[in-house]
Design a protein around this nucleic acid. Sequence first.
DNA 1: AGATCCATGTAAGACGTTACATGATTTG
DNA 2: CAAATCATGTAACGTCTTACATGGATCT
Lengths: 194, 194
Amino acid sequence: MLDVRMLCLAALMGREASGYDIKKDLEKGSATGLIDASFGSIYPALARLAQEGHIAVRSEGAGGRDRKTYAMTPEGKAHFLRTLAGPLPEEKYRSPFLFAMLFADDLPRARVRAMIDRQIVVWEDKIAAIEDMAACASGAGESFVAGFGEATLRAGLDFLKRHRRRVENAAPVTSLDRQGGQPAPETHAPQAAE
Amino acid sequence: MLDVRMLCLAALMGREASGYDIKKDLEKGSATGLIDASFGSIYPALARLAQEGHIAVRSEGAGGRDRKTYAMTPEGKAHFLRTLAGPLPEEKYRSPFLFAMLFADDLPRARVRAMIDRQIVVWEDKIAAIEDMAACASGAGESFVAGFGEATLRAGLDFLKRHRRRVENAAPVTSLDRQGGQPAPETHAPQAAE
DNA sequence: AGATCCATGTAAGACGTTACATGATTTG
DNA sequence: CAAATCATGTAACGTCTTACATGGATCT
């Protein structure tokens, strides 16, 4: 449940698509942090789903590699819905930001401030992305999920803005603060120095 | 970042502990959905961290298998804090519930209702767990995270209660509804029928 | 002509879970 | 004394990511 296979089926409930298309679709939803998958998992998943009869393939083009368009079969649709209606695993919220905040009392104040500043931007962007998504939601389910995402993000944002002073003041002042800079590494490059 | 190793170090920032203790500690935090790890990953992680000098081991007892108590070294502490202050990866929220809600328009109304009922209980329990946690929070960071969790969960809960009618009414009425039952499988047993 | 996007796939490796193997100690 | 809890570890397996290999089509 909620593995690449389900993600592919979900994408194909909306429209026919190639593996490439699916990845693009997921990237949009991924902006909200809900879903994501790489080509390395999508292509094998599609191959297996087709083999199992959940989806149908149609090969187009004659080039070196064909473009393959996948579409849900009636059986696949039923299977997907049956799985969704079945027992669902627990949800998981993995937040490196919140994890770091747990130790704010031991982190340089400048870094704590920078992390919070950054998180505010991230969440504001997510809210904007959700609003775009909500605008073209096709059903009650989709607008419900969008509304939910917006409500919780706004609540988080609000909490952050209202209570940031408390954590920031608890964080120790270091040389960083006195020099007035935050040499903050803001994005996470997978290879970056550890 | 945010792998088992970091989780172990985080647990050991608070106190000395054995692998077993760490697992128990994480289970408490895990109630909030923030963190989790199994013995199968904790023990190898501790062995490697000790080998690298991030933590120190002390073997006690003389039985077949010693109880090993791990404690942070100054080097380990510095490493942990440096990592936390460094670039953080994006947060991920994996919610099978929300994923299912995306397709509420195609799911039996009785199931949608049951899922929402269940989610309300889950979140209410989490809020209660967080309140317990907040009561014994040792620093500003911990109470901040607890407060954040509570605020967002309450917002989610509130949204759910106020808007559930909309999704429920969009969900198709099936035989399940007319018979008045929801034979709902509520928990997810890993082996359960797919 | 070079860059960028479209497009598919494979292989290696990271990371984690479950299940198994083992045994001491405490509690009912 | 049986059951639960404390306690550590390994092996098999699943799942996903990264990096690589390949090449057509489109845009500048």
